[in-house]
Amino acid sequence: MDTLLSGQMLFAALVSGSLYALVALGLNLVYGTLRLLNIAHGDLVMIGAYTAFWMISLFAVPPIISLVVAAALCALLGWAVYVGLFRRMLAKPELAKRVEANSLILFYGISVILQNLAALAFTSTSRGYQYLDTVITWQGVSMTGNRLLTLGIAAAICFGTILFLRFHLFGWGLRAVIQRREAAQVVGVNLNRVQLLTICGGFAVAGVAGVLVSMTEQITPFMGFPFTIVAFVVIIIGGLGNIGAGVLAGFCLGLVETYGIALTSPGYRSILIYGLFVGVLLIRPEGIFTKAVRS
């Protein structure tokens, strides 16, 4: 019981919660504005992680700088996907009719390609590096520098995005697109621009999350999928397209997971996550924190 109530436990929960919130944030932004359930989202995390790994191993560039590189790389990928695939799909009436289901399968294809390209290029060996792993003790809670950095950066991006959406004109336009796409266009929101910038931003955030993950965990070409599932759980709990609630849900999942595992055993982690995923979808696909959602 003592360990459950310790600050140590809370810190661990906050770190993983902030990461989940960050990964889900990108997925949620892309879903909200493009109606695109990007099942390859976790693979962007993987790309970010490998970027950081190679930058530090080959060029001795610290992850704090790789954050920018990974973000740029993933943003570029977002641009390519939007221009190369998404617009093309919308242009075909037979595909646009069922764009959500079709895009899901399409992105599953992309996910498989990314994973296996990474496995071909980097082999399936898990890799890692050490960065800021000195222990800092504060008020009896021991923290490593890299975890502290993860929490700080992830939380800053999440809350920064929420503030941006609330107070910046572009953020208003983005929220308008999420709420009512057609009406937003009528009042002069440039849908194309909002969608393009959002997909770049959403992908970039996933890349950043990948760099953060690589500082504390081993990375493999197939590490991305669990992140996709976690992000789905988070945004389904928070409500698809509901950005603020999604961040809250991310932290909640971090708490539930950390304490759930502490009470049982680490072997139950996957069952817990997938169980939540299935349970939430079955009970309320439109989200738990939302009041109502328009189709």
């Binding site: 079709n102 399409l106 498989v112 390609i113 071909l120």
Partner: peptide, 17 residues
């Protein structure tokens, strides 16, 4: 096997589009 999966993914994307 990895190349096979890549071909599978590419074919799927090409056919859907």
């Amino acid at each position: 096997p990895q190349l096979y999966m890549i071909v599978l993914g590419l074919t799927l994307i090409i056919f859907i589009l």
